[in-house]
Structures are given as structure tokens and as C-alpha cells.
Design a protein around this nucleic acid. Structure first.
Lengths: 255, 255
DNA sequence: CGAACGCTTGAATCCAGTCAACCCCCGTGG
DNA sequence: CCACGGGGGTTGACTGGATTCAAGCGTTCG
């Protein structure tokens, strides 16, 4: 607790100007609401913070003082029991937000997967900005709805899917996350360990490993090192994930 | 589709005045933001809707046109696979809200447990009200954060808790829900079937039944009929739920 | 080099699921 | 009145998918 600027929050502040204009999160994060030069409104309230691999940004139960946007690297949020059981509730990449809170406290812990950089917004100052730019609050509400929707998908996965469906679903979504970046959509670079995949899917490392091995032996995927996976049979992967058919499609409403 | 007022939404509209002044949800729902006579602002946009036991209010994937507040009875929201697997993601009681959406569509289906009454707010009209009463949007955002926090708790439960812990946790929260209403906090009236409990906890009916039987034989609870449970040993129930100790308590920050 | 760590693989175990029977409660209708 | 059927719930026997326990491999790092 010798860092007076950060009695709670982990990581260290990066001094200097905010490089918003070259930020890879700029187009998809809250700040996208502030067009053109209005981005300068953030100058006085936002700081950038760097978190080393494996270090925590905040803990579940900490008083919540900031929202954060991941701008570089990857992070994860999770809940932990004192007996060691852990449930990772999300992986976060540039543009993603964390820090939504419950009764003034963080509802989960946050940790950097690799080295990560986040943009830090004091909640109090944000509430001030909301009055000037109501669109920011709109944005936040929509973001929160989206998070809730994927939380519900994850609940279905955790409660009702088999190990194979869980792994295939996970790879499927990782693949679609990659697709946003470039054309080589079938090569996945996993930013997390087997243990983290297991804790995300409600499995053990051994089951994750065995299931990935099965997919490899079946020819559905190919592995290149531990972090890289090539999807050889996209249709098969979707099928194993439970398919588009696993969840009822939206019912058409004739008339 | 012969009801022109409700091409999508299930249930039937209850004609007549809005009895906001005697509504049991009034104190805890969005409308609590509108103090005193301002509640009249809702007169033109809100209708009440009654849903029979077991009938759907809307389906996952339907175009989302309304928010709803449960005012009487109980409802559930869930996701369903076409092979019959179902994950119930929440039970809703008077004051609770549903209808948060994702890309203009409902992210889950909603069904009445018993006969239920909801208050229906058109989303478009709500967005108009937000401009006049920004506090309403604040309220919604906070509500959404709270939902997200409990979704994360539920993910931990689904991914990492044993059958006994799941059941005990469920009963524990049902007990605390009752406590808000009256002094007899140890008597639970369950509004859902064993199958619904199973689909909420990621178990089968048989396991739910067996686990409840175990709790009864141990003297932790007593059952009176199928829907009524008396908690005889509150401490034991908390212990079985994983305890206050199961999730790490908020860390104190010395200094 | 040796220790540590992450990952994989095999064998044994176990918790929850599956299959099946039965009970109880109700509502229906002869 | 009772016979009947059906649904929800409970219980038992068995199965099986995932976990646990354990060993071994490859890489990294002090």
C-alpha cells in the first residue's frame, strides 16, 4: 500500500498523453460516443494503467471506484471460493469494459492474462459526463444488456452442455472473435492456459486436455504448440458445439 | 394472431386504470423513480397484462418491443435447446423486471409460473421518458448491473458447486426472499416444480428430489406438502450452501 | 543440471444421470 | 361411489461421463 495513487487498484499508471487517436479500442468502447475533438473531455479524468501478466487489477468486494476499458492485451474476470474453486466469468479483449458493480463494490476479481493496458474512468466523474452526454449512459446500458445476454448463454453452457459441447462452443467463439481482425479466420491464438479454459467452462484441466485431443484425433482441429489451434472442419466444430440447431432459432412471426 | 394489440406478446391486456398507488411493485420497480403525481406520466404508455399459469409472455429471439415489470405472481426466464434441454436463468417476483434485450431481440423466453400480472412499458416510449427523467435510465443501468452480478454468482454455482451446494444455496436464497415479506423467515413457499428447480440449478429432477430428501433426513429442513419447506437448522443450511466461507469475503484494506 | 510448471495420458473412482418402478394426489367420468 | 388415467414426486438399481489420482513428457528458468 505504498502507492498513494492506487490504494486498491493494481497495476501502475502510465504517464503521458492519452493516445486516443491511435487506440485500438477507440471504435468500440464508451469513448466512441465522444466524436472528434470532444474526446478531449476525457483528458482530465482518464488515466492509462498497465498490469503485468497474472497480476490483479481489483478483487471481488473491493470498493468500486472506476470503470476500465481494456485497450491492449487480455484480461479475465472471475469469482473464487476460498477452497480454490474458481469460475472465470469472462475473457476481455481490447474494447471490452469491466468494473460494473453491485452496491458500490466490484462483483468479481479481474486479472491480466498477459501484460495488459486499461483505460481507467473514475465512476463519479463518469456520472458527471452522463449529464453532458446522455448517449454515454445509453451506451453503458446497452453494453450491460449485451453482457447479460452472453451471461445467459454461458449459464446454458455451464448448466446443460457436455464437455465436448463446451470445448467446441469455446473454440467456435474464439474463432469468431479472430474473424473480426483478419481473413485467416480458422487460426486461433489462445491467450489463456488450459486451467483457465477449464475454469471458464466448469471443467478440469484433464477433461479440457482430453477433449482437445479427441478433436485433434478426429481431424476437426490441428494444434500447433499449446496456444495455437487451426480449425480444419468448421462445420464439424459447429455441430459439436451443439450447432445452430442446439438453441432454438428465433421463431418467425408470419403476418 | 387474432389479437391485433399483441401480435407477439402473450397474455391478455387488463383494461381499466393503472392501480399504481396500491401496486406491490411500486416501491422497488422503475416507476419508483416517478415520485408523487408524476406517476401519471405512465398513464399513456403503460398497460397491464395477465398471463395464465404456464403460458409464455415472449420467446427468445422475438423482436423486443417492451420492458415488463412483474406486479403479481411469479415468472421465469429461460433458454431452451430444441432437444429439450432447458436452462432457467431466473425466477421473477413482484418488482422484478424483464425484457432487457440484445440487438432488438429478447435474449430469453419468459413464462408465468402461476397466474401472473405484468406492467408493460413500450421501449420506444421509455426512451422518450429517459430524456425527461434521466434518473429512470440510471435506475435501469443499476438494475442491469445487479442482474449481471447475480448472473455471475449463478455461473459460479452452475460451474463449480455440487448438487447439495446448489440445492442448499437455492433454499438459502428463497429463504432470504421470504424474509423481505414477513417475520416467519424460515418457512418457504416454493412457486416452482421440481423440474423447474432442476432446470435452474443444472440438475435432474431425480437429483433434486434425492438431495431434498437427504436434507430432510438430516433434520436440516422439514417438508410440508410439495411446495412448502421449513428450514429447521439455518446454520447447517448455510454451511451446506458453501457457507459465507465458500466465497471469499471482501478483503479489508488496512491503512 | 535440477526443479518447477503446464500439458497429456492412463487407471480407478465417484457423483450425478439414466432407466424404471411406484406412490400419491387429483380430476374425470362411468 | 369407485375405476381410471395422468402428472408430479420419490426411490432404487445401474450406468456413465467427468473427476481424481498418478505418472510421464517437454519446456523454461534459476
Amino acid at each position: 500500500m505504498n502507492d498513494a495513487d492506487a490504494p486498491v487498484t493494481g497495476g501502475r499508471i502510465i504517464p503521458g498523453d492519452l493516445p486516443c487517436l491511435v487506440c485500438q479500442a477507440r471504435s468500440s468502447a464508451v469513448c466512441s460516443v465522444l466524436k472528434g475533438e470532444r474526446i478531449a473531455c476525457l483528458k482530465d479524468i482518464v488515466v492509462r494503467r498497465q498490469i503485468d501478466a497474472g497480476r490483479r487489477l481489483f478483487d471481488e468486494g473491493d470498493p468500486a471506484a472506476h470503470y476500465f476499458i481494456v485497450t491492449d492485451g487480455a484480461m479475465m474476470v472471475f469469482k473464487e471460493a476460498h477452497d480454490g474453486r474458481r469460475q472465470i466469468t469472462g475473457f476481455l479483449y481490447p474494447g471490452d469494459m469491466l468494473g460494473l458493480n453491485h452496491h458500490q463494490r466490484y462483483a468479481y476479481s479481474a486479472e491480466a492474462l498477459g501484460e495488459a493496458i486499461v483505460c481507467q474512468y473514475p465512476i463519479a466523474a463518469m456520472n458527471g459526463l452522463f449529464r453532458e452526454f446522455p448517449d454515454m449512459e445509453h451506451w453503458l446500458l446497452r453494453h450491460c444488456s449485451d453482457e447479460l445476454a452472453s451471461a445467459h448463454d454461458q449459464m446454458f453452457l455451464l448448466g446443460r452442455k457436455t464437455a465436448m459441447e463446451k470445448i467446441a462452443t469455446f473454440l467456435w467463439f474464439q474463432m469468431h472473435r479472430m474473424r473480426r481482425r483478419g481473413p485467416d479466420a480458422t487460426r486461433l491464438e489462445l491467450s489463456m492456459s488450459r486451467r483457465e479454459i477449464a475454469d471458464y467452462l466448469g471443467l478440469t484441466v484433464e477433461t479440457v486436455s482430453r477433449t482437445i485431443t479427441r478433436l485433434r484425433r478426429d481431424g476437426t482441429i490441428r494444434t500447433a504448440g499449446k496456444q495455437t489451434i487451426d480449425v480444419l472442419d468448421v462445420d464439424e466444430l459447429r455441430e459439436r458445439a451443439g450447432g445452430d440447431r442446439a438453441l432454438k432459432p428465433a421463431t418467425a412471426h408470419p403476418g
